[in-house]
Amino acid sequence: MQKSARTVMSKKRQHLREWLIERLLFASAIISVFTTLAILGVLLFEAVGFFQQVSIVEFFTDTRWTPLFVPQHFGILPLVWGTIMVTAIALVVAVPFGLGSAIFLSEYAPEGLRKAVKPVLEILAGVPTVVYGYFALTFVTPWLQNFFPQLNVFNALSAGLVMGVMIIPMVSSLSEDAMLAVPQSFREGAYALGARRHEVALRIVVPSAFSGIVASFILAISRAVGETMIVSMAAGSTARLTLNPFESIQTMTGYITQISLGEAAFGSLEYRTIFSVGLTLFLMVLVINLIGQWVAKRYWKRY
């Protein structure tokens, strides 16, 4: 009799405990949702304050960005353009070298070589971006100045090139994974028709893996757009609309860094620019990621 009373009690306690634990775990899972809401909340809250003083039209159409000078201009185009320029240069490096590496590792390299080389390339992704920034400023720029004396000490080219190297493993790894997922039976069918290795790789494997390959490009773009330290250290802090990669420019992320270091007074208009630029950056990355998902779905080949 004693026993059964005890069992009934501990069963209730047990149920309570189970329920409590589940609630706790749910609470930690909800943190991710909270994070997204918090990001949006913080950005919008301060950005609304910003846009009460600066018109949205001016923000998106003015071609000058000079919040720290008189007269103040708040046109974000130069910052967006700086971001685009550096990203474009980075892609010129990352796409061919990343894809070429992926094709080599997936279709040409023997298994032993692939297993050895792939983690080494991954190290490129693990190097902190301050190291890349240091390299861009102290090595790449002086070296390039040997060939282009007109190259400014801060310029878009060095930052873009180094950023490209940084995102090579992103393109290479994801593209390689996509190519490895292509069934061997496709390759066999092509070889059986008398195709050579480069024809199998370029005409069968790459088109079949196209969805994953494109997804890797888009991911690389979004990473480049959000990258901060390389551009802060090497690209400069002059927001300008120029087509010349030898000049100093400023990206959205570079500006945010600059103003953060300046310790602008909380609540001031200059302080709020952090959030309006941040919001623009956040939305831009969001759109890029959505485009990436759409493109990946569109080109996805089932097999």
Binding site: S185, G189, A190, A192, R196, R302
Partner: peptide
């Protein structure tokens, strides 16, 4: 030339393997 050989000798596999094209 093994590539020319494979043109002259066609192969059909156990599981049909058309390309995803």
């Amino acid at each position: 030339s093994v590539f020319e050989l494979r043109r002259r000798v066609g192969m059909v596999f156990q599981k049909p393997n058309p390309f995803p094209k």
